[in-house]
């Protein structure tokens, strides 16, 4: 009789589970939601905020202000993904750019791709826009510093459990003389315990 119950249970399970559908719930963009333990938007935002705050509180900033009397101009270069995950570094770069601009402490200039497009537009203005509204060539502000970096991971795995260690290294390099004026490091450690059973 036990076997018969198993057959009935199977049929019921198949029918019930067949009816399971997708549900979507909107959550606040600032809410931390960890599903897989992989690098996510929360890691990106928190790391960008912490590291930019750290960068702007270090001596290079004061020294630059004292030496030039104006806020430093910064550009964000390449952030290399050397981790075990496919990380969209563009969103991380965008988070760093936002934090830098919103700090109000530094001037910020567009990256190489954006500059190219703007120069094309300026060239077009040269031909087609009126003199009063035209933006002239050769008036760009050059960056004083470039921020570059890399994301590394170390993953320790045992069966269904993992310890994921992320290390983000950023550095600010003087465009004038290649001096490294700031090096920042942010570490994130996650313990991911995957279920051994599913429905």
């Amino acid at each position: 009789m036990k076997c018969s119950k198993l057959v009935a249970l199977t049929l019921s399970s198949v029918l019930i589970l067949g009816g399971c559908g997708t549900t979507v719930e909107r959550v606040d963009a600032d809410t931390a939601v960890d599903l897989s333990g992989a690098w996510n938007d929360t890691d990106s935002q928190l790391t960008a905020r912490t590291m930019v705050e750290d960068a702007l509180s270090r001596p290079w900033f004061k020294k630059h202000m004292q030496a030039t009397g104006k806020a430093p101009t910064v550009i964000v270069g390449k952030i290399k993904n050397l981790s075990h995950e496919h990380i969209n570094t563009q969103t991380f770069i965008a988070d760093i750019e936002r934090e830098l601009i919103n700090s109000g402490d530094v001037e910020f200039v567009a990256d190489a791709t954006a500059r190219k497009e703007i120069r094309e537009e300026r060239g077009d203005q040269d031909l087609n826009a009126t003199e009063e509204t035209r933006s002239e060539m050769g008036k760009e502000i050059g960056a004083d510093y470039m921020m570059q970096g890399k994301i590394n991971t170390i993953i320790d795995v045992d069966g269904t459990d993992q310890v994921r260690f992320y290390q983000v290294d950023l550095e600010l390099i003087s465009m004038k003389d290649n001096r490294k004026v700031w090096i920042g490091q942010q570490k994130i450690k996650k313990l991911v315990e995957n279920s051994k059973m599913r429905k």
């Binding site: 399970s13 198949v14 279920s195 051994k196 059973m197 599913r198």
Partner: peptide, 16 residues
């Protein structure tokens, strides 16, 4: 996702 063992699928495999 399927790396974990499924209860319902195991019953299905055991009976069908």
């Amino acid at each position: 996702i399927l790396f974990a063992t499924s209860f319902s699928e195991n019953i299905g495999a055991a009976t069908v």
